Simulated assay, not measured.
Amino acid sequence: MYACIDLGSNSFHLLIARWHEGSYDIVERFSEKVQLGEGLAESGVISERAFARGMACLDTFRQALARYPIERCWAVGTNALRTAGNADLFLHKASEKGFLIDVVPGLQEAALVYAGVISALPDDETPRLVIDIGGGSTELVVGSGQRCLQSHSMAIGCISWRDIWFRDPPRTEPALSQAMDNAVTAAAEVFSGIAGKLAETPWREVYASSGTAKMLSSVCAQSGPGKRQATGVKLETLQSLKPAIMRSVLEPGFSLPGLKNGRRELILPGWAVLNGFMTACQVTDLNFSPSALREGMLHYLAQASATGESPLHALQAH
């Protein structure tokens, strides 16, 4: 039985799975909104409150792990632990609780995301573009089958974009509308820097993974007549959501269909970042992938177990 721990800038995740003959069964999933990257864009450090939330979550994970006969456990830290000035202190305190965390560079994070996304797709050579919008960074991969043809890690995410653009959202409709437009324009400028490079490797399908994509896929699915299964995002639908998103911010009593209360504070930056990406890279529609970095970690953990090496070494060798 394997355990994978993903310490992201927004959420911490624990995946426990049973691996048997090349496939796995998910035993448990745990997720907690820690927001380790809260205020990081401004202060450069993990705040005292975020630090405490992270430690408390690790205590919860430790209790969950104790209930299972875990053979191998792998913990990975991403953008917040890559960039925070006090990341070493967090890693030290985590080690005292029994968690040895591998902080992976952005391109290795992208490889983990890609491996996770394609694990749930047909095993073929279809060229695909994969995007994962996290709390502090966004990973992009164009791949075909098991091969990553190009990878990028961008310094833009739903937590950092919230802290930059929507820390104190305007309370009037014209001002909020302008702030949303400005945030989309700024996001598009970030992604336009690699749009040309991405276009050099044409893709047929686009998949978006993790929380922001899940949130917006769910909201898009509820925006039309009737209720549809949340499977993806069309740019036209995403842009048409602007008035409803503004209403959800300006009217506390209004509930945006498909949006969970725990994600309300991230709807503005999430919408802006995904809108900016799709606009800059001329993506008219994309699919939501329920598989992401944790499933990619599981792939490399199983591969490492078969060879006797560490999962980080298996990832680096790839």
Rank of each mutant, 00 (worst) to 15 (best):
R82D: 05
L286S: 07
N10Y: 00
F191E: 01
T284F: 07
D25P: 14
T172G: 10
G106H: 08
G262I: 04
C57H: 00
G85T: 10
V219D: 00
G253V: 08
C158Q: 09
I245H: 02
S137L: 07
L15Q: 09
V142E: 10
G308K: 12
V233W: 03
L274V: 06
G258N: 09
A84K: 01
L140C: 12
L301P: 04
Q35A: 04
L301F: 06
L36G: 00
S11G: 13
A272C: 12
S160F: 05
R147P: 05
N275V: 03
A188F: 07
Y2W: 13
G296A: 10
Q35F: 02
A230F: 02
L7S: 01
V283I: 09
D6V: 02
S240C: 07
I267C: 09
D25S: 15
R18M: 12
Q63E: 14
Q239I: 10
K33A: 09
T231Q: 08
N275C: 07
H20Y: 15
L40Q: 04
G308A: 12
G143T: 06
C57D: 00
E265W: 08
Y24R: 14
G157N: 10
M1I: 15
R167K: 14
A175S: 14
S119K: 04
V103K: 01
F51C: 00
A64S: 10
L91G: 01
P169E: 08
E309Y: 12
G145E: 06
I131Y: 13
V283C: 05
Y68W: 12
E125K: 14
G145H: 09
E48H: 11
I133C: 13
N261W: 13
F254H: 15
V45K: 10
V113A: 11
A183M: 11
L259G: 03
E205C: 04
G253F: 15
I46W: 01
L268T: 02
Q303N: 09
C57E: 00
L315Q: 02
Y114V: 07
G22S: 14
A111N: 09
D285Q: 06
G143P: 09
D285F: 03
I131P: 11
I159Y: 03
E38W: 02
E189N: 09
K227S: 13
D285A: 06
E173P: 14
Q316M: 14
V190D: 06
A208L: 05
P174L: 13
R82P: 13
A272F: 10
F99L: 01
E125S: 15
I16F: 11
H20V: 15
Y2I: 04
P169Q: 11
H13R: 02
P105H: 13
V34M: 02
L312E: 04
S43V: 10
E96V: 01
V130H: 08
R72E: 15
P311L: 08
L198Q: 04
C158M: 11
H299A: 11
V273M: 13
Y300I: 00
I245F: 08
L15F: 12
I70V: 14
